[in-house]
């Protein structure tokens, strides 16, 4: 038996196990199909690279996106951020902290009636623009708000 055949059979065996697990209800199909974590984007240290992985390069500035965050954050470890997109047909929002070590903070995909709105709390290493990248109707839009941080929330 040659090596290729061995590897192939091994792979087929493993796939069979997954199918059995699905059939037995151990794994819900939705969990299997969930999009894989965007490792390239979340570990990128440059803003441009992070933007590329989410298709956010060249997004148009929009006044229909509200980025709500404090002007001055006393504690960078907990900065409340709210993003609301009033653009019809908003399908996703990505949240970016431009000067963080890894600028891409989180992404949100909406479906089945969820509005283009998200509220969260983020860590900021230092003062930065908090940027939202919104996808709606196949186009990308962006808006940002400057937040001054007096005590950083990463490291130390």
């Amino acid at each position: 038996m040659n090596q290729f055949r061995r590897t192939f059979l091994k792979g087929a065996g493993a796939a069979g196990t997954v199918a059995v697990a699905v059939a037995a209800g151990l794994l819900k199909p939705t969990q299997v199909l969930a999009a894989e974590w965007n490792k390239a984007g979340f570990t990128a240290t440059k803003l441009d690279e992070a933007l590329k992985t989410i298709g956010g390069a060249g997004a148009a500035e929009s006044k229909d996106i509200l980025v709500k965050a404090p002007d001055i954050a006393e504690n960078g470890a907990v900065v409340p951020v709210e993003i609301e997109s009033k653009i019809p047909g908003t399908t996703s929002i990505a949240l970016i902290i431009e000067t963080n070590l890894n600028p891409l903070c989180s992404t949100y995909d909406f479906s089945n009636g969820a509005l283009g709105y998200v509220s969260t709390r983020v860590k900021m290493a230092k003062s930065s623009k908090v940027r939202a990248i919104v996808k709606a109707g196949g186009k990308t839009y962006t808006a940002a708000k400057e937040v001054k941080v007096t005590i950083g929330g990463c490291g130390g």
Binding site: F42, A77, S106, D109
Partner: peptide, 18 residues
């Protein structure tokens, strides 16, 4: 309704509103 991916930059004991 919501499929979200996070990094370590979300604060401890995360809050999420949608």
């Amino acid at each position: 309704v919501l499929d979200s991916q996070w990094s370590q930059a979300i604060s401890k004991n995360p809050f999420l509103g949608f």
